[in-house]
Design a protein around this nucleic acid. Structure first.
Length: 539
DNA sequence: AAGGCACCCAACCGCGAAACG
DNA sequence: ACGTTTCGCGGTTGGGTGCCT
């Protein structure tokens, strides 16, 4: 393990600073003077460029960052940069958190299911890594991006399309030929491909093929086009014992004619992936059949999909700009900042992250109560409210959950009056009042903004599990709720926000979608647990 | 054992979008 | 309306590592 320097010396920014030596030696960079550094006094902010540490993160830095995130939340990277004591720019802190430190991040290799899913999603979304990552719980966009580049490189090296062609899918579904029929020159390549599971398309290369697994049947390949070099093959335990129920990208026999599929949208004269950044993307091919099936279960693909014309009628290229959509996170960010004007409807379509920071549903009847989510760092942890300096701050809160018979959503704006500007977040637990039609009793209590409560009670250290007995005075937007109580024991009776019932059917269906996604997440977790067990058993 | 090579992946950067003042 | 700040995304880099010769 490398030891990292604590003393920082200025150097030029840019990649050249990474050259050579121990990571500790290659680290510093400067940022524009707009950014103030670590413990520097504000008065001296003038010209002194901030010196940042670069390179690998130490454990100490990770711990600092974790504490800072707990303190300031996952959206105040500038505050984290300024007050965490880390000599790292805000964006790097964010990156480190998202890619390495955040909870629930999976630390083991992709499973076959995940790899299949990435293929599937990439065929729909292109290089929108964050969007793909949003469909793979516990995986970062960077991780997925690295996986894809790795895979693309392999495919390019072996002159193979990344997506399987229809012809090969048919071959695969109808053949089961021993690799003894393959000439020696192609032995290595055959070793590579023979180990794919039978329901795994020939050209969808798992990163970790296994040459010994009996579950893998040899596939017939067009060996003349296959490489003789298998040096890039990597063996890891992740696919040693794949589940026999792996989802198929294209089930045998399900092929349909392109005319009957969305492929009819495609032309055959369009260049390859105009948005592709590297030549690797030139090999991204997908069959119309596959695409047809993918789009059957997918959200509407935005933009035209175009086929590449070529010598092989079965070779296709998805041509489209990846849909430019804001990530669920940014949707939430925008939403949470729109404090002065609430949107007329709650648009959380397709966003599993819309429940971030929402407390679980808590009916007043104890027998119906669901325990609070406890992990402080979980996306579903109690709402964290950062008190800013300079007086009252409006916050909008959006929560969604489900009663026994209907999705419930709430949307509120309330005001936190902060007599002193503590920089630590105030963590509140909010329940969702139940609409009358649900049959549950509704909450209506809220702290009264007129009753002063001293600020020292907001010590962040006491806000995690055992919440302070009294919370900061707060008031709701008068249009949204009416304060009733003067103080509140948060542990026993969480504050409530006024229920806001979205009116439009679209919103309601979106809510259903969110609920459904949470169920999917549970299923994903189960699948991951199974994959982990397989991983451990075979390693 | 040492050097070369290829690959992986954590980390960095630039840029655009959104939020803010 | 406009400039600035902040955030997030996608592309790229290069150190670390393992394999091969």
């Amino acid at each position: 393990m490398a030891v990292y320097c604590d003393t920082l010396t200025p150097c030029t920014s840019g990649m050249e600073s990474r050259e050579g030596g121990d990571p500790a030696d290659r680290v510093e960079s400067t940022e524009p003077p707009t950014t103030t550094g670590g413990e520097k006094a504000e008065g001296e902010a003038e010209a002194e460029p901030v010196v940042y540490k670069k390179g690998a993160w130490s454990k100490e830095e990770d711990e600092k960052l974790k504490r800072a995130v707990d303190e300031y939340g996952v959206r105040n990277w500038v505050a984290i940069e300024k007050f965490s004591g880390l000599a790292r720019p805000a964006k790097n802190c964010r990156l480190r958190w998202l890619n390495y430190l955040r909870p629930n991040l999976k630390k083991y290799p992709f499973t076959l299911e995940e790899e299949n899913l990435i293929l599937d999603l990439h065929s729909k979304y292109g290089n929108s890594w964050s969007r793909i990552a949003s469909k793979l719980p516990g995986r970062s966009d960077n991780e997925i991006k690295n996986f894809w580049h790795r895979r693309a490189k392999k495919c390019q090296k072996h002159h193979l399309p990344i997506y399987p062609t229809a012809q090969e899918q048919q071959q695969q579904s109808h053949t089961n030929v021993s690799n003894n029929n393959v000439n020696d020159n192609d032995a290595d390549a055959n070793d590579y491909f023979q180990n794919l599971p039978t329901n795994y398309p020939n050209h969808t290369l798992p990163s970790t093929p296994n040459i010994h697994s009996p579950e893998f049947q040899p596939n017939l390949l067009n060996t003349s086009s296959h490489p003789t070099n298998s040096s890039s093959i990597i063996h890891s335990p992740q696919t040693l014992n794949p589940t026999p129920q792996l989802p198929q990208l294209v089930p045998p026999g399900s092929l349909t004619s392109p005319q009957q599929s969305p492929a009819s949208q495609f032309t055959d004269q369009t260049p390859l992936l105009p948005n592709a950044p590297t030549s690797q993307a030139q090999n991204l091919l997908v069959s119309p059949q596959q695409h047809s099936q993918l789009t059957d279960t997918a959200p509407q693909v935005q933009g035209p999909l175009l086929w590449q014309g070529g010598s092989s009628p079965n070779t296709f290229t998805p041509i489209r700009k990846p849909p430019i959509l804001s990530s669920p996170d940014s949707l939430l960010r925008r939403f949470s900042r729109a404090t002065s004007q609430l949107p007329p409807t709650v648009n959380v379509s397709g966003s599993t992250h819309s429940v971030v920071n929402a407390s679980p549903f808590l009916p007043s009847d104890p027998s119906l109560q669901i325990p609070w989510s406890s992990p402080a760092e979980s996306p579903r942890s109690p709402l964290k409210l950062k008190l800013s300096a300079g007086g009252p701050v409006l916050y909008s809160v959006h929560m969604s959950t489900q009663t026994t018979d209907a999705p419930v959503s709430s949307l509120s704006t309330f005001q936190l009056k902060s007599p002193t500007p503590p920089l630590s977040p105030l963590k509140l637990r909010l329940s969702i009042p139940v609409p009358p039609e649900s049959g549950f009793q509704s909450h209506s209590s809220i702290p009264d903004s007129t009753v002063p409560v001293s600020a020292p009670q907001l010590k962040p250290s006491s806000c995690s599990q055992d919440l302070p007995t009294t919370i900061q005075p707060m008031s709701l937007d008068a249009n949204r709720a009416v304060p009733l109580n003067s103080s509140l024991n948060v542990t026993n009776m969480p504050p409530s926000v006024q229920f806001y019932q979205p009116a439009t059917p679209e919103v309601n269906s979106s809510m259903h979608e969110v609920v459904s996604d949470s169920h999917l997440e549970i299923m994903d977790e189960l699948r991951e647990a199974e994959a982990r067990v397989r991983f451990l058993r075979t390693s």
